[in-house]
Simulated scan of single mutants.
Amino acid sequence: MDRLVSMRVFAKVVEQGSFARAAEALEMSATVVTRNVADLEAHLGTRLLNRTTRRLSLTETGQQYLERVRQILSDIDDADALASSSSRKPSGTLRIYCHPGFGQSQLAMLLPLYAQSMPDVVLDVTLADHAVDLVEQGFDVGIFIGLQKFDASMIARRLATSSVVLCASPGYIARRGAPATPAEVSQHDCLNYAFEQLRHSWPVEWDNQVINVPIVPRMVSNSGAVLRQAALAGMGITVRSSFMLEDDFESGRLVQLLRGHHLGDLSVQMVYPSRRLLSAKVRSFVDFMNAQFPHPERDPWLPEA
């Protein structure tokens, strides 16, 4: 058994949702695909996939193994791509898609650094929060946040983990006080994102379970910048992703609330269509962004307690 081949076959079966579609995508026979997965399970001594006549599903072990397999394959392909592109000079137009919040607060500061080191690359940057098909719309690379959807066939590398926090200005806290428990948030003015799932309640971890705390919106907006300005002006409490805090906590303009309660995390992911024959300009940007965020499992923006 070629373990690396079997790992690629296993990952493709999960991605495609069936042995037949994986066989077609890999240009293998269904028998060979099935045997590769069976040999891998025999080698590991555990079942990775539950099979029925209608669908496939990962076992708990299979899910954990898949995450490691994807990382291993990603590292191998990255090494191959780096070697093949090392002799080419990055040039041409690099089309980047980015979530607006991350684009305005983080990417905008990083792009001049990248441009300085890559003088022959022209940057074409689009910020949008609607669904984006990178291939169909001609983007070379995208930065996706949280639950934003992208095609499962894309290559995705986590850059960082952003904490979701509650905060308010010192002026608001002096006037209204700070909530001591999640339940007390319901008694405060709230500055809220215009998402239906957040319009009437905020999910907060409390006593080892997540509860939806009812809120009273003082303002609703689809713009994080608008909500930040309202919070700075003392209008109420708002929810912020840590990458959008700028230096508000360090400067004291905003104060984090309910520090002992978890409101969730957002994954910041860099997505691009393929490693095979990856252009030098895309490879240079991927390497640059990975270097800026060397610890993807951590939150680099939230000050330590």
Results as ranks from 00 to 15, higher is better:
residue 82 L to S: 14
residue 113 L to I: 13
residue 95 R to V: 03
residue 77 D to S: 11
residue 85 S to Y: 01
residue 60 E to W: 12
residue 59 T to R: 08
residue 84 S to M: 04
residue 76 I to Y: 10
residue 56 L to G: 04
residue 87 S to R: 12
residue 93 T to K: 03
residue 77 D to V: 03
residue 89 K to L: 12
residue 56 L to I: 07
residue 80 D to N: 12
residue 102 F to I: 09
residue 71 Q to I: 07
residue 79 A to I: 11
residue 56 L to M: 03
residue 92 G to F: 00
residue 67 E to W: 03
residue 102 F to Y: 05
residue 75 D to M: 09
residue 88 R to P: 07
residue 75 D to Q: 08
residue 57 S to A: 10
residue 81 A to F: 01
residue 109 M to N: 14
residue 109 M to K: 15
residue 94 L to M: 02
residue 70 R to C: 09
residue 94 L to V: 05
residue 82 L to Q: 15
residue 99 H to P: 05
residue 102 F to V: 01
residue 97 Y to A: 11
residue 58 L to W: 05
residue 92 G to T: 04
residue 107 L to I: 04
residue 75 D to H: 09
residue 103 G to F: 07
residue 107 L to G: 01
residue 81 A to T: 11
residue 54 R to Q: 14
residue 102 F to D: 03
residue 76 I to M: 04
residue 77 D to W: 03
residue 78 D to Q: 12
residue 64 Q to S: 13
residue 80 D to G: 07
residue 66 L to P: 09
residue 103 G to V: 08
residue 106 Q to D: 09
residue 89 K to P: 02
residue 108 A to L: 12
residue 63 Q to E: 15
residue 63 Q to I: 13
residue 60 E to T: 14
residue 93 T to M: 09
residue 69 V to E: 08
residue 66 L to M: 02
residue 100 P to S: 04
residue 86 S to T: 04
residue 55 R to F: 14
residue 64 Q to P: 05
residue 76 I to T: 11
residue 95 R to L: 04
residue 59 T to M: 05
residue 68 R to W: 06
residue 113 L to G: 06
residue 108 A to D: 10
residue 89 K to I: 15
residue 78 D to K: 00
residue 85 S to C: 08
residue 97 Y to K: 10
residue 78 D to G: 12
residue 113 L to F: 14
residue 92 G to S: 07
residue 90 P to Y: 00
residue 69 V to Q: 10
residue 68 R to Q: 15
residue 84 S to Q: 05
residue 79 A to V: 08
residue 60 E to D: 14
residue 112 P to Y: 11
residue 100 P to Y: 11
residue 63 Q to T: 15
residue 69 V to F: 06
residue 78 D to P: 13
residue 65 Y to A: 04
residue 99 H to M: 00
residue 64 Q to K: 15
residue 105 S to W: 10
residue 89 K to F: 09
residue 104 Q to D: 12
residue 113 L to H: 08
residue 101 G to E: 06
residue 107 L to P: 06
residue 101 G to K: 02
residue 81 A to Q: 01
residue 112 P to K: 11
residue 58 L to I: 06
residue 74 S to E: 02
residue 83 A to S: 13
residue 85 S to E: 08
residue 61 T to K: 12
residue 96 I to T: 01
residue 80 D to V: 15
residue 90 P to E: 00
residue 64 Q to M: 10
residue 67 E to P: 01
residue 71 Q to T: 09
residue 101 G to T: 06
residue 60 E to C: 09
residue 106 Q to N: 08
residue 99 H to D: 11
residue 76 I to E: 13
residue 89 K to A: 11
residue 77 D to N: 08
residue 64 Q to H: 14
residue 71 Q to L: 13
residue 78 D to W: 06
residue 67 E to D: 10
residue 87 S to V: 08
